[in-house]
């Protein structure tokens, strides 16, 4: 297998112009390398740019700056030279399963569509195989999306994404539109598919408990940047960045003894506006550990003392910061 990462982004920025000279910097310099075969979670609070990042990776949103490469080839090159090849390599699962299916098409027609576009023969057989893969009965074929439940619709969305047998799946909050009771089933489905098909999955989520359960690695985003990346266990148990600590301390524990004594970091205030991020470290306005250097110098994503990568002056492995 190739040794380049499945997805690599370097310095990706996505800025939206809201008024002359004023930009919302939804994604503002993201470096990410996701090795093939991993289940990577991206977490962060609302408005931090996770969804924009996901849409940029699949090309629904063009990057203002920076480079994205998929399987070692740049996204712009893919899109220029081999759009269909890219579609067979990487697919997307939407947040809203109802909106992502045409309300006029039956489930069979929706599942057939990618096969028609790519001229795949023996469509009926493939569609049935897809139904089995995501655990839907044959009776679903003739139905319209609105006569299925939310969980079933999302299964259809996943089946359609898998129709072309891609190796990379980008999922934009695939669980947030679902009932809690259904979520567990879809989580299990993702874990199952990843193991069975050896997929590289990038999942945007704000349900931290879910990320902890199925992702092997995780990145934490804050205000358009990645502040910490690393193996899930390590990030959840021993976060290097103060923002990750605060975010992850919000996850409740199922053990009541731990839950009652659990230390919670409550952040004051709202995140600053992404159109005008603070100078220095972006987190300095809310960080409990802020010191002088944070206000002047922006930390870069470097190997942290805890392992993994973190963008914090306090945790850089190469230079033990002194306060």
């Amino acid at each position: 297998m190739p040794d380049f990462p499945a997805i690599q982004t370097s310095g990706v920025k996505v800025h939206f112009r809201i008024a002359p000279g004023r930009f919302v910097k939804a994604v503002d310099g993201v470096d990410l390398a996701i090795p093939a075969g991993t289940f990577h979670g991206i977490v962060g609070e609302s408005g931090c740019g996770k969804t924009t990042l996901a849409r940029t990776i699949v090309g629904l949103q063009s990057a203002t700056e920076g480079e994205i490469s998929i399987a070692g080839r740049s996204l712009s090159n893919w899109r220029r030279a081999d759009r269909k090849g890219l579609a067979r390599k990487m697919q997307f699962v939407f947040q809203d399963p109802l909106g992502s299916l045409s309300r006029r098409q039956t489930i069979e027609q929706s599942l057939e569509e990618p096969l028609i576009i790519h001229g795949v023969p023996d469509r009926r057989k493939r569609v049935e195989a897809l139904l089995d893969l995501v655990g839907l009965p044959r009776t679903a074929l003739g139905r319209l999306p609105r006569s299925l439940s939310g969980g079933q619709r999302q299964r259809v969305g996943i089946a359609r994404a898998l129709a072309l047998d891609p190796s990379i799946l980008i999922c934009d909050e695939p669980l947030s539109a679902l009932d809690v009771s259904i979520r567990a089933q879809i989580v299990a489905l993702f874990a199952d598919l990843q193991a069975k098909l050896g997929l590289t999955i990038v999942m945007i989520a704000h349900d931290l408990a879910v990320v902890r359960e199925i992702c092997s690695s995780v990145s934490v985003m804050y205000l358009g940047r990645i502040v910490e990346s690393g193996a899930t266990e390590r990030v959840f148990d021993d976060a290097a960045h103060p923002y990750s600590q605060a975010l992850l301390s919000a996850v409740p524990s199922p053990d009541p003894r731990i839950e009652t004594t659990r230390e919670r970091v409550i952040l004051a205030g709202d995140p600053p506006s992404p159109s005008n991020p603070p100078a220095g470290c972006r987190f300095n306005t809310r960080c409990p550990l802020v010191f002088e250097r944070c206000r002047n110098e922006e930390p870069v994503l470097n190997p942290a003392t805890h392992g993994g990568l973190a963008a914090c002056h306090l945790s850089q492995a190469d230079q033990h910061a002194t306060i």
């Binding site: 629904l60 269909k84 579609a87 939407f94 809203d96 072309l164």
Partner: peptide, 10 residues
């Protein structure tokens, strides 16, 4: 979104 889905399908 289903139009976007079709785009992503190529």
């Amino acid at each position: 979104p289903y139009i976007e889905a079709a785009r992503i399908m190529g």
